[in-house]
Simulated scan of single mutants.
Amino acid sequence: MKAAGTVLLFLSFFRLSFSLYRKHFFVTTFMTWEDAQTYSREYHDDLSTVNIEEAKLLSANPGNHEYFWIGLHRSPDNPEQWIWSGGEDEEIDNWDIDEPNTYTENCTIVRKYNSKLHNAMCSWTLPFSCMEVFEPILVHQNKTWDEALDYCRQTYTDLASLRSQMIMAEVINKAITSKTAYVWTGLRFLAGHWFWVSGHNLRYKAWSAEGELQCPARNLRCGALDKENNIWRPNNCEDKLNFLCLKKL
């Protein structure tokens, strides 16, 4: 049994590590919170930890369900405290009005229409969101874009996708130590459009002043991060640059 859908991954879980990506997998099978946690830990990493932005994106998943589980639950040691499935303190201030509202409902759901949190009976059966956690790694080797892609996929997971302003800010901190002025990312131009090699669309964009080239020259079809100006630029795919991989934790 595999997840029915995948949504964008975002950066924000600073308590675990300096900078982490989360990739979410929406599961349409209805389970109790405990069974959903067991499933998530077997097939992914855990039930999802989310920020407000992630809650909104997960709420966009298709289906007629009104609610879905995330990893937030009441601490067994302190009924006033809410913690994530992995044991971290709750860091999201996204409760709906008058929530949480009872000490008998110890697990957390997201209400789809407004992406707000509600506490609920853990015995309810609902769809849920699992997550996998990644860390960006700067590789201090000079490789072409294709060589960098092969290296990341063989050694780690993939070339990094900079799909939000938060991710961009954290990756820039990593890129500062690069030995090259530009750093390869997972941005590529093929079949008439730019895309991330992870398969996600370009919603957030940080192009140079020239903007997103709609028909770049054949030698300028790989996307690099300009670490000094904090922008993306189309680059010659044969240039040898340092690069950013994603490492599965």
Results as ranks from 00 to 15, higher is better:
E90T: 05
E90Y: 00
E91H: 04
E91K: 01
D96C: 00
D96A: 08
D98L: 10
E99Y: 03
P100G: 01
T102R: 02
Y103V: 03
T104N: 08
N106Y: 08
I109S: 12
V110L: 07
V110I: 15
R111H: 15
R111W: 14
R111S: 05
Y113L: 02
N114E: 04
N114V: 01
K116S: 02
L117D: 01
H118Y: 12
H118T: 01
N119W: 04
A120Y: 10
S123L: 12
S123T: 15
S123W: 08
W124Q: 07
T125C: 07
T125F: 05
P127M: 14
F128N: 06
S129V: 15
C130Q: 10
F134A: 07
F134I: 03
I137M: 11
I137G: 02
L138W: 00
L138F: 00
H140Q: 10
H140K: 14
N142D: 05
T144V: 02
T144C: 00
W145M: 03
D146W: 05
L149V: 09
D150I: 08
Y151H: 13
C152M: 05
R153F: 00
T155N: 11
Y156Q: 14
Y156E: 15
L159W: 01
L159K: 00
S161W: 03
L162Y: 04
L162I: 11
R163M: 14
R163W: 05
Q165T: 09
Q165F: 10
Q165M: 12
M168E: 10
M168K: 13
E170R: 12
V171G: 08
N173R: 13
K174R: 13
S178C: 03
S178I: 05
S178E: 03
K179E: 10
K179Q: 07
T180L: 07
A181R: 12
Y182M: 13
T185W: 02
G186V: 04
L187K: 06
L187Q: 04
R188L: 11
R188I: 10
R188C: 09
F189R: 05
F189V: 07
L190K: 15
L190V: 12
L190P: 04
A191E: 14
H193Y: 12
F195W: 04
F195M: 09
W196F: 02
V197K: 01
V197L: 15
S198E: 05
S198I: 00
H200M: 12
N201E: 14
N201G: 06
N201K: 13
R203W: 06
R203I: 10
Y204Q: 08
Y204V: 09
K205T: 15
K205G: 03
A206M: 14
A206E: 14
W207M: 08
W207T: 09
S208C: 11
Q214F: 11
P216S: 09
A217S: 10
A217R: 08
A217C: 04
R218N: 12
L220D: 05
L220N: 08
L220F: 10
R221Q: 15
G223T: 03
G223R: 00
G223Q: 02
A224I: 07
A224D: 07
D226K: 07
D226W: 09
K227S: 01
E228K: 12
N229Y: 13
N230W: 11
I231G: 00
W232Y: 08
R233K: 15
